[in-house]
Write a protein that binds this DNA or RNA. Sequence first.
DNA 1: GTTCCGCATGAATCGATAG
DNA 2: ACTATCGATTCATGCGGAA
Lengths: 292, 292
Amino acid sequence: MKIRNDLYFGDCKEQLLNIPDNSVDLIITSPPYADQRKGTYGGIHPNNYVEWFLPISEQLLRVLKPSGTFILNIKEKVVNGERSTYVMELIIEMRKQGWFWTEEFIWHKKNCYPGKWPNRFRDAWERLLQFNKNKTFNMYQEEVMVPIGDWAKTRLKNLSETDKRRDNSKVGSGFGKNISNWVDRDKAYPTNVLHLATECNNKNHSAAFPEELPEWFIKLFTKENDTVLDPFMGSGTTIFVANRMRRNSIGIEIIPEYFDMVYDKINPVEFYLCEPNEKYEKAKSKRRKAVC
Amino acid sequence: MKIRNDLYFGDCKEQLLNIPDNSVDLIITSPPYADQRKGTYGGIHPNNYVEWFLPISEQLLRVLKPSGTFILNIKEKVVNGERSTYVMELIIEMRKQGWFWTEEFIWHKKNCYPGKWPNRFRDAWERLLQFNKNKTFNMYQEEVMVPIGDWAKTRLKNLSETDKRRDNSKVGSGFGKNISNWVDRDKAYPTNVLHLATECNNKNHSAAFPEELPEWFIKLFTKENDTVLDPFMGSGTTIFVANRMRRNSIGIEIIPEYFDMVYDKINPVEFYLCEPNEKYEKAKSKRRKAVC
DNA sequence: GTTCCGCATGAATCGATAG
DNA sequence: ACTATCGATTCATGCGGAA
């Protein structure tokens, strides 16, 4: 089956209207942080951030399948020496919109931005907020299992009496089965803390988003031929990873340079063979630029 | 100078009234999480948590010095399949009380509770919320510098007693600028992510609070002869660490067994020499128990 | 003295069952 | 319907005894 990559140019609040209800399996995005990227996105003042984001999250709620997941990468900035509360307020307001705030993953940035301040240390983590439309949703936990710790090597050689009891308490007959399950196991389920380095080499977009991040969530929450949406596409990391993993993708971007960069990179064949993508035509015409 | 350890028995909302205004340099505590320690602390329903905590944080604001810091260790529990929002609401309300929410540290619990669920992974982190009374406060960043590289492993884990003593004497002896500059070259400032394992062997208290946690913040925010307060003392980890580091300490605890355990452990000399501590007398009399 | 190895336990959460 | 209790699930750590 052919994998689709649909790119929309423009403000995501408007462009999201093009996307049908209940059609997206995973939304993963890193919106412009408040006042943080003034140069590129104009900057939203922390006081207006919630108000600015809520109409967008309302559209995201509409386009997401009931079984789907929304991963929001965000971190509040420091304003006047203290952390701003707009992320807290956003979570509370999104719940009122109908979102379930299922979980908060921590992205531990191993190589965080250097610097020294008199009143704080370097910021080495960001929030990865998981929102859902329902309490049950698709989750493929086996896809992201990690190697088990070294303790297992010695531990599983000789199972203690207590282990046998704990594993089988009140079960009785399932004894042998449990033991074999443990002995064969060389992988464990991960936790809600992700250890990833940021990518320093991406000079084209101001947000450093390592490929491993969307990759992990795409593995966890989608299967092949599912659809992934990034309403703040930026340099397109999510889109490229989804494409490589054989997921359909939808990207929205308001900055012409980023949009063109992603388009040229993701659709080189269509471009050179002059097989215009209808949506791209529409986008390009809005920008009053010639195509092909 | 003699290091004081003042212990108060009872509800911290009331016992805090005994402590003068602007007298504490560091408050570090881990209150009972909502509905979490029902067996010992009765449990506060998530819906009532903010309302329960605000009168306490108001007292904490009063007793803290303007240059002091309040570290609050907390994590929201899952209610009906989603994270509860009482911590978010608490942060917002505490700011209205006059607190500055300076920073949020992450405590990454390497050995988190095991388990498997269809909709989430193991919870491996907790919040360490830093609140201040003013935008400027005491912070001794050099005291927690770590060797370049894996600081959590080499520095905070497996510190021997001699290492700890050596560290303490270094604080008192006053290195010259030249030496500290030289030291700076192979040390780096830490980040706002702490990697510590919980202590599983503490049979006396249900909350596993590793000594390294209060130690780190005591180093960072106080110097010798400063005063450290833990209004939810529990098994007294914060108090013992403060005592060892030659900081005055104030502990409040409502459970008689914990109170007695800490008292007996921290004041063995006074106890056996029959030099009654006035505050302990008061506490004991409230509990109608004989002393000495 | 080291190193190895057995072992209990921990701020958990879900789903089923019972009142 | 709504709440309370209980069993099942699962991984890393530090302690203490043994080699």
